[in-house]
C-alpha cells in the first residue's frame, strides 16, 4: 500500500558511501565554487521557508481562537499552547493515535528491513534459477500503483475482520519492493563473494551464513531503510484513513479530525499539527544526517 519507491540512476560510483566520501575529500564541493553572500542568502531563504510553516503552526497554536481574527498578525508566540494541547488531546484520541503510529511505523520498519535484507541477500549473492527475471519483476512492481486496489483490499480486510485494527495497516506494508531492491543493490557491493564461499565451505547452512555474514554487512543500508520506512508509514494517510476510521486512528488520521468540525478553530488545528510533527522532528535531529546520505546514496524516493 505504500507509494512505490525506485532508485535514481545516479552514477554507480556515487552510490557507495565510501567512494562518495573519498571523492569528496579529494575534491570538496562542486567545481571549487566559493559560495558568496548570494548563495548563502538564498539557502537561508530556502531553509527559513521550510521552517516557516512549522513556526506559523506553533505561533497560531500558542494563541487562542480569536488570534486569526485580529487585524494584525502576531509574530510572537502567546501562552496558550499547553491549554490548546490539552484541548486537542481531549478532542481526539491523541495519545492513542501516537501509540498507534509508533506501533505501525516501528513494526513495518523492522519487518521491511528484515524481509528485504533476506530477499536482497538472495538476489545479490545466491545463485538460483530465475533470479534475474524475478528481480526484474520486483523492480517492475515499484511502478504499479497498488493503492488503486483499495476497494478489494478493503473487502479483504473486512472479510478478515481487520477493519479498524492496526493489523490492517501493518500487514500490507510488511515488505516493499523498494526495500528488496535497495538491499539487493547494497549487498551486491558490500559482501565479497569469497566470504560467502568460505562460509559455505565451512559447512555453514544458508541461514547461518545469512546471519553471520550478511546481517553485519547490511547494517548501514538497513539503518537507512529503517528510517525511510518509518517516515513513510508515519506520514501515510490514505489507507489508514479508509481502513481504520476515527475510532482507532494513527496520528495523521486523528489530525484530520481536528479540521472538520462545527467550526474550524485554527489555534487548535495548528496545535495538533505541531504536536503531530514534533516526534518526527526529534527523529530528524538525530537521524537527519542518515536520511540525507540515504537519499544521496540511493536517491531514494519513498
Amino acid at each position: 500500500m505504500t507509494t512505490s519507491a525506485p532508485l535514481a540512476p545516479v552514477d554507480p560510483e556515487a552510490k557507495s558511501g565510501r567512494t562518495l566520501g573519498r571523492r569528496r575529500r579529494s575534491a570538496p564541493g562542486g567545481q571549487n565554487r566559493r559560495p558568496g553572500f548570494i548563495v548563502y542568502g538564498c539557502l537561508v531563504a530556502v531553509v527559513v521557508g521550510g521552517m516557516f510553516p512549522l513556526w506559523w503552526s506553533f505561533l497560531i497554536g500558542s494563541h487562542d481562537s480569536t488570534i486569526l481574527s485580529r487585524t494584525s498578525f502576531p509574530w510572537w508566540p502567546g501562552g496558550n499552547f499547553l491549554a490548546n494541547a490539552a484541548t486537542v488531546m481531549d478532542t481526539v484520541p491523541f495519545w492513542r493515535a501516537t501509540m498507534n503510529s509508533i506501533i505501525v511505523s516501528t513494526t513495518t520498519a523492522v519487518s521491511v528491513v528484515f524481509f528485504s535484507t533476506l530477499a536482497g541477500y538472495a538476489f545479490a549473492k545466491l545463485r538460483f534459477k530465475g533470479s534475474g527475471p524475478l528481480l526484474v519483476f520486483v523492480i517492475a512492481t515499484m511502478a504499479v500503483p497498488t493503492q488503486l486496489g483499495v476497494v478489494p483490499l478493503y473487502q479483504v480486510m473486512a472479510a478478515l475482520g481487520w477493519t479498524g485494527e492496526l493489523t490492517a495497516v501493518i500487514v500490507p506494508a510488511l515488505v516493499t519492493a523498494f526495500g528488496v531492491f535497495w538491499m539487493t543493490q547494497y549487498l551486491r557491493q558490500a559482501i565479497p563473494d569469497e566470504l560467502i564461499e568460505a562460509a559455505t565451505m565451512d559447512g555453514c547452512s544458508m541461514i547461518r551464513t545469512f546471519y553471520h555474514v550478511c546481517l553485519p554487512a547490511a547494517r548501514p543500508a538497513a539503518a537507512m531503510l529503517f528510517l525511510f520506512t518509518f517516515v513513510l508509514n508515519w506520514t501515510n494517510f490514505f489507507w489508514p484513513f479508509i481502513v481504520l476510521g476515527p475510532q482507532n486512528p494513527t496520528l495523521p488520521v486523528a489530525l484530520q479530525q481536528l479540521q472538520a468540525a462545527h467550526f474550524v478553530d485554527y489555534s487548535l488545528v495548528l496545535t495538533g499539527a505541531t504536536l503531530a510533527t514534533v516526534p518526527l522532528l526529534i527523529l530528524f535531529v538525530f537521524a537527519g544526517r542518515q536520511l540525507v546520505s540515504g537519499i544521496m546514496q540511493g536517491a531514494v524516493k519513498a
Binding site: V47, S57, I60, L255, Y266, L283, V292
Partner: peptide, 22 residues
Amino acid sequence: WRMGVLLPYVVTPVAVALIFSN
C-alpha cells in the same frame, strides 16, 4: 544546509495541508 532543505520531508502531508489551508 542539507538537513535544512530536507526538513519539510518529515512533516506529515496532513499537517502540511492543515497549515497551508490556513
